[in-house]
Simulated scan of single mutants.
Amino acid sequence: MAIFIVRHSTTYRYEREVRLGRHQLMARPRDSFDQRLIDFSLDVTPKPSEVRWLHDVFGNCVAHIEFDRASDYLRFDCEIKVDHTPENAPDFRIEDYAKDHPFTYHDEEAPDLAPYVQRWFSDPEDHVGRWLDTFLTRGTKRPTGQLLMTLNEAISDGFAYDRRTAPGTQIPSTTLELRKGTCRDFAVLMIEAARSLGFAARFITGYIYVPDRDGPVWLGGGATHAWCQIYIPGSGWVEFDPTNGIVGNRDLIRVAVARIPSQAIPLFGTYWGSREDELGMNVEVNVKTASALL
């Protein structure tokens, strides 16, 4: 068990005062048996006229933040304290019928899982399938857990991480062509590959703890992150982080789950002004253990 403390700050600057519109924030971690939210605080500058919390269709906590003023500066500061219980090794307790792949989800679960099995990105030339064929023999019986770990490792070992400032997520065929991408790109590639094999898979956004950066100084000690979960009968939704080759929740702090990446954007909003008014955005994220700050 570990107590993680997250500080997440996002700052927007503008050439002149612009009228601020609604902003939507996803930063409050999800409560679960392996992750308990101890405390969460949000400070917004300038002061908003209203902050309204709601649950979206996936049960994520979402803040709608309204403003009644103009400003040349906008800042969101979140501080989070989470009690985290890591799974240091995958514990695949798989139902007998699903121990080997391919298998079919049981009738009572299949309707609820169907949206997560359906592929989202068009792939008429089957780029994902042809990539899978380089290390898997599709249609051949294989242990389910072994197959998924192989897929996770194929992305972790075969692609280069490339920080990209442009918004959005690459389509899987682009990631396969470039052999590089961001954590969101790798999560999407794994999701689409798993779905092509008949698995239910969903997108996760949150934070990652980086042990090598831990310490008493609040500087570069973590990052926002994206990975995926795959539904395995008997084990439920299991975490796979293809960027780092992690299976299970070790060092991962879940904030939001979604069917596709555009449903889990940490922060976005509007303003009234010209495109040239925007001077840029700065994001600072630190994830520390409480013990390192003593």
Results as ranks from 00 to 15, higher is better:
67 F>G: 02
278 E>M: 14
34 D>P: 12
114 A>N: 14
73 Y>S: 10
166 A>E: 14
37 L>E: 12
100 D>A: 06
22 R>T: 11
4 F>T: 09
7 R>A: 12
92 F>Q: 01
108 E>H: 14
210 V>I: 15
178 L>S: 09
99 K>S: 04
49 S>T: 09
25 L>G: 00
204 I>H: 11
193 A>Y: 01
156 S>V: 07
206 G>V: 09
7 R>C: 07
93 R>E: 11
197 L>T: 03
24 Q>K: 12
227 W>S: 06
248 G>T: 03
172 P>F: 03
75 R>S: 15
218 W>E: 08
112 D>M: 12
75 R>N: 15
255 V>Y: 04
150 T>N: 00
112 D>H: 15
137 T>Y: 11
30 R>H: 04
258 A>M: 03
18 V>G: 08
7 R>P: 08
202 R>V: 11
215 G>Q: 10
188 V>E: 01
129 G>T: 08
287 V>W: 09
12 Y>K: 04
228 C>R: 03
99 K>A: 05
151 L>T: 00
72 D>S: 13
264 A>L: 06
91 D>V: 07
57 V>N: 11
93 R>Q: 14
155 I>H: 07
146 Q>R: 03
111 P>Q: 13
46 P>V: 04
37 L>W: 10
231 Y>Q: 09
147 L>F: 00
17 E>M: 09
225 H>N: 09
